[in-house]
Design a binder for these strands. Sequence first.
DNA 1: CATGAATGAGTCTTCATTCAT
DNA 2: CATGAATGAAGACTCATTCAT
Lengths: 204, 204, 204, 204
Amino acid sequence: MPEVSEQKIGAGNKKEQILLAAVEMFLDRDYYQVTITEIAERAEVGKGTVYEYFPSKEVLFKESFSYCAEAYLQSFRQHFTGSSSIRATMHDIVKTHLDLIKDNRKRLHLLFNERPLSFQELQNWVLERRQELLKGITDLIEDGVKVKEIRTGIDVEMAGRLFLALNYVVMGGMVVLDNVEVEEEQITALLDVYWHGIGNTLDN
Amino acid sequence: MPEVSEQKIGAGNKKEQILLAAVEMFLDRDYYQVTITEIAERAEVGKGTVYEYFPSKEVLFKESFSYCAEAYLQSFRQHFTGSSSIRATMHDIVKTHLDLIKDNRKRLHLLFNERPLSFQELQNWVLERRQELLKGITDLIEDGVKVKEIRTGIDVEMAGRLFLALNYVVMGGMVVLDNVEVEEEQITALLDVYWHGIGNTLDN
Amino acid sequence: MPEVSEQKIGAGNKKEQILLAAVEMFLDRDYYQVTITEIAERAEVGKGTVYEYFPSKEVLFKESFSYCAEAYLQSFRQHFTGSSSIRATMHDIVKTHLDLIKDNRKRLHLLFNERPLSFQELQNWVLERRQELLKGITDLIEDGVKVKEIRTGIDVEMAGRLFLALNYVVMGGMVVLDNVEVEEEQITALLDVYWHGIGNTLDN
Amino acid sequence: MPEVSEQKIGAGNKKEQILLAAVEMFLDRDYYQVTITEIAERAEVGKGTVYEYFPSKEVLFKESFSYCAEAYLQSFRQHFTGSSSIRATMHDIVKTHLDLIKDNRKRLHLLFNERPLSFQELQNWVLERRQELLKGITDLIEDGVKVKEIRTGIDVEMAGRLFLALNYVVMGGMVVLDNVEVEEEQITALLDVYWHGIGNTLDN
DNA sequence: CATGAATGAGTCTTCATTCAT
DNA sequence: CATGAATGAAGACTCATTCAT
């Protein structure tokens, strides 16, 4: 039984070994710059072995991409069903998201930089996920409006899109591109801008 | 001198011809999918001629990228020296930016999708431009604070970054990725969220 | 002994299983298009098992080829010792041969189309079999001359070669390549041409 | 002018150079055993150059095949419009055909041994040529019947098919496979069998 | 300057064969 | 004996770049 189990793990491990090697490579260089040979070498398997588990480089890339994306998506999803105040939830989302980015700087390069658009299938998958996230956020905002935590009269979709941009570009950009050390206070500062706006309330 | 000038113009024309052809190709497909042969064909010059003006495919790509990016950057820069109210300036920026995106959906794919990061030199150029834009925006916001159009106490950098994300990701994403018809009212709605925040002021 | 016997039978069965699967595959596609994996799958054995019984793909092919060829050869051999008239014997040969072709359209593709010539060893085997058949036929014809059923003065070897071509090319070609429905009358018609020639006897 | 002319010839020569090299290779080994690299080497051009003139190995093979086949077909066609007696025409066909085979022993291997059947397109081309030849021969035979040089009552198609087999297999087989020295007398002997049949006329 | 024929390094992918279990 | 996971040699094909004209 342990033997069988080991074998199963072994088989699973080999596929995972290759996938992880591929992810690492794709994080560093782009699709065309990464060769199957290199992936095989890094995974410490023969070139042919890669093809035992992935029918083509394209599929291997797609799986690498989804693998990276899933963790990212989870950082949003886990909060959509929360019960805290909306503002706290949003803070949590940004925080979780930031932590994830910090822990996976390189991994997220794949999401930020690679062009899933070359592969129609992946492109569609990405668009669907975007919609999913947007829906999650706008639902949250609508809830906020109902409980009067969020003001009435705002364009919910726009508010949602701006929140996603806040996470994706502001946080992601700072950490991944600008390589800035982002701390808790900055999350608070950013959310403060998002929550209260920048306008001088005396003006309106 | 006229001769030299003529030659330069002559050279310039052919160079531009090639550059424009390259831009068109890179807008449609990615770096590796575009071949020098295709660019030469579209530019209606011989393959060797491309190498008369650009030492390599990489350089040709970089110049194509900068060429596209410049127009984009201008849509921001032109407003940084304006004299209107900050809010009006921001509205103008978003509007100009949106028009640009709409008129150049495909062209902007290059900016949104291509991976300048593969080329360190270009990567740095992009980061510098990002800093330039951020500086322009934060200066604007600081001016706003001074004239009390913008409330004190906000994190100016975060406000600036969020504004850039608003343009780049929210607007860009809607038009280019989601293919949504974005109208004036939506700009207003989005800026309203950004300006007044989403929080119910009764709460604070 | 029973054990050995059982083992042999066991082995023989598995070997035959593989051989038959190989034949089926080689009948459909050519040597290079058929993979050992496919053969193993069709034989319902593991890939490694194929190598237990056949040292290489080449040997497996050779055995498949001979296996198919033997049945074909028998359709000739069985008549070489007959006691009927020569003409009747020839008719029987053609008839038997035609039935065999009809029943094994696909199987004979291997003989008609595969290139045994790539394998010197097989090439020689084929040449030897050709000689064997030619000898059988010329002996038959010589007997015919002796009993005056066949006219004197003919070149026996040429007559024999033409008879083989009649079977192999004319019959085979009609059935396998042209996919024509060949009936008894056509055998008679063809043999009539062969037996009486086409020349107007008044001429000579 | 001579320069231009030379260049044109040069270009033409290069394609022909490659085609001839390919033919030589395909005559020696089969489709899968021949590599593009080898063809390029024998043609004394770079590997890439082969692809400048032929889009794929398959196309190169097909053109090699047709190239070889055309010469063969001509050996038949040129006689179909002759004005001699039918028997003389047939003798001429066999003679021409034999000479061709002798002069191109190796070249004809391609026709005798390669499997055009792997390529449906080529397979159809071959079948059409077979029909063309058969039509040419049966027309000839029908003419012979009209002028009473050939006896009435024979099955014209069968007579035609047997004549083709006579050329293809008997002659081709003797020269190419059995490597026999075939002389004029043997043509006469073979045609005598075909013309007068083998049966003892006293019998019927 | 302009050209495009020629090139070959570099890739993905296949598959016969091996060998540890 | 039986297996099939693992392997890497081998091959078709692409394309940026060069250079003779």
